[in-house]
């Protein structure tokens, strides 16, 4: 379960403040691993409008770090897919649940982790949407697009959290 944001977040470094309790952003103190210690965190209610907040913040950081249009396109698309999956398939559109987005943008790469409060799934069981029999189905392309545009897309064991990495393309 994603803990209530205010319980484990330090103040945001750029004054991002919660509205009605969520979204909340700031440096995470509770991230369990050393690897996550520099990550910022935003927790939003399970609502697609609220979920625009992390996207705005991450894209702003990309621009601040001088990432180009192609990287922004890739991150925007992948984030949209991951958050939609968290909202619909993970949290089953339940407004009492939350989506947590952790991220770190550096000059070298963008790392994002999107987690929901669902039961998880097995990504290997999602059929290839380009295969005959699936190509004309209206669903099932999100993970494929995430994998196509990012360098790393890894789900946790349960399947309710996805880590995504986009490495900067050097000119």
């Amino acid at each position: 379960m994603i803990e209530p944001a205010a319980h484990h977040l330090a103040a945001g470094r750029s004054g991002r403040v919660s509205g009605n309790g969520v979204p909340v952003s700031g440096r995470s103190r509770s991230a369990g691993t050393k690897d996550l210690k520099d990550f910022e965190q935003i927790i939003v209610e399970n609502d697609l409008s609220a979920a625009k907040k992390p996207e705005e913040v991450i894209l702003r950081e990309l621009a601040e770090h001088g990432y180009g249009e192609n990287a922004a396109f890739a991150i925007k698309l992948a984030l949209e897919e991951a958050i939609t999956n968290a909202f619909r398939h993970g949290n089953k559109c339940d407004p009492s649940k939350h989506i947590r987005v952790r991220f770190r943008v550096t000059a070298e790469k963008v790392e994002i982790e999107v987690s929901d409060e669902g039961e998880g799934f097995c990504p290997e069981e999602v059929p290839d949407p380009t295969q005959p029999g699936y190509i004309d189905r209206p669903h099932g392309r999100g993970i494929m697009l995430m994998r196509a545009y990012l360098d790393e897309v890894v789900y946790n064991g349960l399947g309710n959290s996805v880590r995504m990495v986009k490495v900067r393309q050097m000119k």
Partner: peptide, 16 residues
């Protein structure tokens, strides 16, 4: 300028 997999699904349904 942007579209998602959900938009692609919408186009498939529309085509049908």
């Amino acid at each position: 300028e942007h579209l998602s997999s959900a938009a692609l699904g919408m186009l498939i349904t529309l085509k049908k």
